[in-house]
């Protein structure tokens, strides 16, 4: 196969096809034909500097052979880029490297990071306890008829439980609750959780939104007592 796309006479050192040290560095700036050949890979991916692109554009507009070469270049690029490469390495594996036992040897990570799963588990357990307590001690229907303004029972029952990260600023908490269109009806509890009240029709959407927030550790529905 002809090595030079335009049938140009290539320097003898190109005939080997192998790379040698600096002696083989090619510079064809004076020859747009060859300069185009050198730049085609980046032209094909839209990665050329403006000046170089102008040189290639100008040359392509008058050289059929180089336009054909560009098409071949695009096909070669697509084939190489499409080669599947095994890539079964992942975040889960790296997380194991971040695990406390290994981290102690290799990675002096801060305690907040290393203990985060444990913190989350603890927070979830506390929230579950709170959820049970809220359900157990929920004011019953008949009592509601006698409640007065200012009395604890005057607060809504709440239908959503939320727990923020321990380091969440108060301003962020207010923002999250406000954006959820929720009303704070109880908390903070001993476990640091809050009970919110939102319109029942919106609750699922609000929960879904809360769970995407970085500052929220836990957002759970509280079901009405039977």
């Amino acid at each position: 196969m002809q090595g030079g796309i335009c049938g140009a006479n290539w320097p003898a050192n190109l005939a080997t096809g192998s790379e040698k040290p600096m002696a083989d560095i090619l510079s064809f700036r004076g020859d747009p034909h060859r300069a185009t050949e050198m730049l085609l890979p980046w032209y094909a991916s839209g990665q050329l500097d403006e000046d170089d692109r102008a040189v290639v554009d100008a040359h392509l507009s008058q050289c059929d052979l180089c336009r054909a070469a560009l098409e071949r270049e695009r096909r070669l690029k697509a084939q190489v880029a499409g080669l599947p490469v095994r890539a079964d390495l992942g975040w889960e594996k790296l997380q194991r490297r971040l695990a406390p036992d290994r981290a102690a040897r290799r990675l002096p990570l801060p305690r907040t990071v290393l203990t985060w799963p444990a913190l989350t588990a603890f927070a979830a357990a506390q929230a579950a306890l709170l959820l049970g307590a809220v359900t157990l001690f929920r004011p019953q229907g008949p009592q509601a008829a006698y409640r007065t303004l200012g009395a604890p029972a005057a607060r809504g029952n709440g239908n959503l439980l939320i727990m923020f990260r321990p380091d969440t600023p108060e301003q962020e908490m207010r923002l999250v609750i406000g954006r959820a269109g929720a009303r704070l009806v109880d908390g903070p509890t001993a476990a640091g959780a809050y009970v919110l009240d939102v319109a029942p029709a919106r609750r699922e959407n609000v929960l879904a939104d809360l769970r995407t927030r970085h500052s929220v550790v836990l957002a759970q529905p509280i079901e009405a007592a039977p």
Partner: peptide
């Protein structure tokens, strides 16, 4: 150097084209 990058690419493409010829 940038020219080294271009040269490496040139040789590589030339080799690929020849092998697939």
């Amino acid at each position: 150097p940038v020219d080294t990058v271009k040269t490496r690419m040139f040789h590589a493409r030339r080799h690929l084209r020849r092998e697939l010829a």
